[in-house]
Computed example of a mutant assay.
Amino acid sequence: MNTKSTLFFFCGKMAAGKSTLARQIAKEYNAILVVEDELLVQLYPDEIVDIPSYIKYSPRLRTAISSHVSDLLSRGISVVLDFSANTINQRKWFRGLFEKANAAHRLYFINATDDLCKRQLKERSKNQSESAFASDTVFEEITKYFQPPSEDEQFNIVVYDRS
Rank of each mutant, 00 (worst) to 15 (best):
P59D: 09
E141C: 08
L97W: 02
N86K: 04
S84M: 06
L121Y: 13
D161M: 10
S70L: 02
G96H: 09
L7T: 05
D82C: 02
S129Y: 02
K4W: 01
E36A: 12
L81W: 13
L61A: 07
S67N: 10
T63W: 05
C117Y: 13
R60Q: 11
G12R: 02
D50P: 00
Q42E: 09
V138T: 15
F94C: 11
I32M: 04
E140R: 12
D82Q: 01
K4F: 06
L107E: 01
Q147S: 12
R62S: 12
P59I: 10
R91W: 01
F10D: 08
Q24F: 00
T63M: 09
D50Q: 08
A31G: 02
L81G: 11
N89M: 07
V80H: 08
E99A: 01
Q128I: 06
L116P: 03
W93R: 06
L7G: 03
F98E: 03
H68M: 10
A132Y: 12
D50A: 12
V80A: 04
D82S: 06
I110K: 04
G96I: 04
R162T: 12
S66T: 08
T143R: 12
L33Q: 03
N127M: 11
Y57S: 06
P45T: 10
V41S: 11
A16M: 03
L121S: 08
E28C: 03
R119Q: 14
S135E: 13
S135L: 11
K56V: 05
P52I: 09
L73Q: 06
R75H: 14
I142R: 14
F109H: 14
K144N: 06
D152C: 00
L121W: 13
E130T: 09
A132Q: 14
F9Q: 12
A15L: 08
T143E: 12
L61M: 08
R60F: 07
F94G: 01
A64H: 05
D114N: 13
D152P: 00
N111D: 14
Y44I: 04
T137V: 12
R75D: 01
R91V: 06
K118A: 08
Y160D: 13
N111M: 06
M14Q: 08
P148H: 02
E36G: 10
K4G: 11
F155H: 03
L73Y: 04
N30L: 02
F83I: 04
Y44R: 05
D152L: 00
S74H: 03
T137H: 15
S70P: 10
I32R: 05
K56M: 08
Y145E: 15
I88A: 11
F98S: 01
K27F: 05
Y57H: 15
S78M: 10
L33V: 02
K4L: 07
F146R: 11
D115W: 00
G76V: 04
E28S: 03
A31Q: 08
F155N: 03
D82E: 10
L61G: 09
